[in-house]
Design a protein around this nucleic acid. Structure first.
Lengths: 114, 114
DNA sequence: TACGATATGTGGCATAGCAATATATGGCAA
DNA sequence: TTGCCATATATTGCTATGCCACATATCGTA
């Protein structure tokens, strides 16, 4: 139970919001993003490489994030992504959308006394 | 904008929670469920027939809901679904899981000052 | 040498949403 | 009487996407 995700299904769709949010403050690379999500959710939400990297390419292709390779001696090359101006706008819209969605779910699942 | 879903992606996975919640108080049929969700979310969340009916079959197959045909003169036959004891337990677990998920998302997307 | 952590990448399968389409009934308007 | 809309359930086929398993590559440590 503790090794499993909170719910694999619910992770879908929220992935973009999570990644864009984490890139808001500073550029980060893929592995860092996956570890951050894992730690902050206390292991509840986990991104697999096979989901994360293709998603990063999609976000970059849409122009929401911009990646650049950083090579430092003593470590494998990393691709750091940062939010583009377009990505900042999308993030704001997604935050609003997420709020609205959570409220809608709340109204539907909790209004059984109506 | 108003004709579009809040976000098609976020609907994924929450579908089961929505349906189980709506069946908690009383048995309902498919079309009724889709209309209820649409109205309570003020059009933000909408279930298409091609998603809803297969989902209802899946839930019934898993033993979480039980359907029965109701035929009344003057209207098309309807299939009313009600929660099974197993479904009640699953609903409780899904409610908890949803809460935990929303909190985890909040921690990840809002902790950029850490 | 061997293993684990870091770091990125991909082929292929399974799931699942949705557009389009179909069937069937009843009410209402042209 | 013909046509259209709302109700109500159902399926086919396309597409998007998550994940298992595997691969590549570097570094530290035992």
């Amino acid at each position: 139970m503790a090794t499993k995700s909170i719910d694999a299904e619910w992770k879908k769709g929220s992935a973009e919001l999570l990644i864009l949010s984490l890139l808001e403050a500073m550029p980060r690379h893929g592995y860092e993003i996956s570890k951050l999500i894992e730690h902050r959710s206390e292991g509840g939400i986990r991104f697999h490489a096979a989901s994360l990297y293709p998603l990063l390419y999609r976000l970059e292709k849409r122009g929401w994030i911009q990646g650049r390779w950083v090579e430092k001696s003593g470590q494998r090359r990393r691709r750091y992504y940062q939010l583009t101006p377009s990505g900042v706008k999308v993030l704001a819209a997604q935050r609003e959308g997420w709020q609205a969605f959570v409220e809608a779910i709340s109204r539907i699942t909790g209004a059984e006394n109506a």
